[in-house]
Design a protein around this nucleic acid. Structure first.
Lengths: 236, 236
DNA sequence: AAGTGGTCTAGACCACGCT
DNA sequence: GCGTGGTCTAGACCACTTC
């Protein structure tokens, strides 16, 4: 197996999660670790850098690496996670209903809203998500047909990301997101259980593949009481 | 001056921001760059890693480093930025009013909400922020007196972070945040201009110093129309 | 095959915390 | 002064893209 530093990262991360290495204590020094793992110090430093970035440890020059309390970070879903993965992680009974699935050409109006080229063919998808018996999320997706061919209603019902990564063998790489609060539209009122709610939380995302090409634009509209965003941020 | 890789990072970042290096093009190869900057390839790689993490470039093995369109990321304020810095960056005419400034002992009720120890002394602060003529943010802070001694109403009116970093010489390191939408409290209604608004966006943060000690707990309550959160996320 | 980024090494020196 | 993490180097080999 490749990637020595990732194996070391995973090993230490596991030992922190299980509590074998306790929060508040210091890790072995980098020199000690390089001997324990039979590797060079730079490789250890790569593994520690990952642990640092994921919030497992805090490094202090001259002192050592403090193990942080990972339990408090519980679900840092700031990243890029599909609804299916998320629901599973949160232990929700969740269902997806595809309301619209059609092919669409990017016209002037759409071109202004999203980043795709004029006249490019896209899949236009509307899905509602039912969580614990209520319709609380409406997802409006536009996905490039050129980059993601062969999409179907059935795939949308399951997981588009799984299809892209496992069937097409593409890698989803990064996203730019914007979170705002807006008034519900007529469509929101029609498709979601919004009685008594005066706002929806709107998450607009542009999602990119590994070669930096944008394949997706999504507007995800959430009932405000069911919205939660957790973030772990380091000062730059 | 120290930190060669940071200087290289800043130099390339500047050239991307000004458009001297165009989005969509490839950077020089790492070997070329190491010659241009008279340094080793590993040092170049450190600088490129930073550019990658900040969303300036996308690296593709065997091909090169693609320059991304940084304009689309405009203000990724996902990190840890003081209100003063943020207002300045956004070009807002903003003012802060300190409504409450007192010393407080952590009692049972507070202990459950925040992470500080029972009976610890904290500063309790309430501030409202006026942006473009309207009161739109209410900040409720609890700050450890042990870690941040000598706070005053005047400092709270200016910038607590500036005081901590510049006067006390401490380094703010990381934060855990949670974003939710809630009903306004009586206090929200009293201190903010909320006519016609049925929700507030609540950002709860725990903020830590470099030695991993938590010095602050903040509840920041925003009028929903003035709330915007921008995020750049890479898939893990 | 040539050129690119990805991993790994062994060693050097520096900056910082602790005692 | 000693041990810690932070920076930097020069070189090796591997994996991938492109021609």
């Amino acid at each position: 197996m490749n990637n020595k530093f990732i194996r070391i990262y995973e090993d230490i991360a596991d030992r922190i999660r299980t509590g074998e290495i306790e929060a508040g204590t210091l890790l072995q020094s980098e020199l000690d670790l390089s001997e324990s793992y039979q590797t060079s110090r730079e490789t250890i430093r790569k593994a520690l850098k990952m642990l640092y970035e994921e919030g497992y440890i805090q490094k202090i020059q001259g002192k050592g690496s403090i193990v942080l309390d990972i339990r408090k970070i519980d679900f840092p879903i700031s990243g890029l996670v599909s609804f299916k993965e998320l629901a599973k992680k949160m232990g929700h009974r969740a269902q997806t209903y595809v309301k619209v699935f059609k092919e669409q050409q990017v016209d002037q109006a759409l071109h202004k809203k999203i980043n795709f080229g004029l006249n490019e063919q896209v899949w236009e998808i509307r899905r509602v998500r039912k969580v614990d018996g209520e319709y609380v999320i409406l997802d409006k997706d536009y996905i490039s047909q050129r980059l993601v061919p062969g999409l179907s209603k059935e795939i949308c019902n399951d997981s588009i990301y799984e299809y892209i990564e496992q069937e097409l063998g593409l890698s989803i790489s990064f996203a730019k997101k914007e979170i705002l609060v807006e008034e519900p539209t007529a469509e929101d009122r029609e498709l979601l259980d919004l009685e008594g709610f005066h706002n929806v939380v709107v998450v607009r995302s542009q999602v990119y593949l590994e070669d930096a090409s944008q394949f997706q634009y999504t507007e995800s509209r959430h009932r405000p009481d069911k919205f939660r965003f957790v973030d772990f941020a380091r000062r730059r």
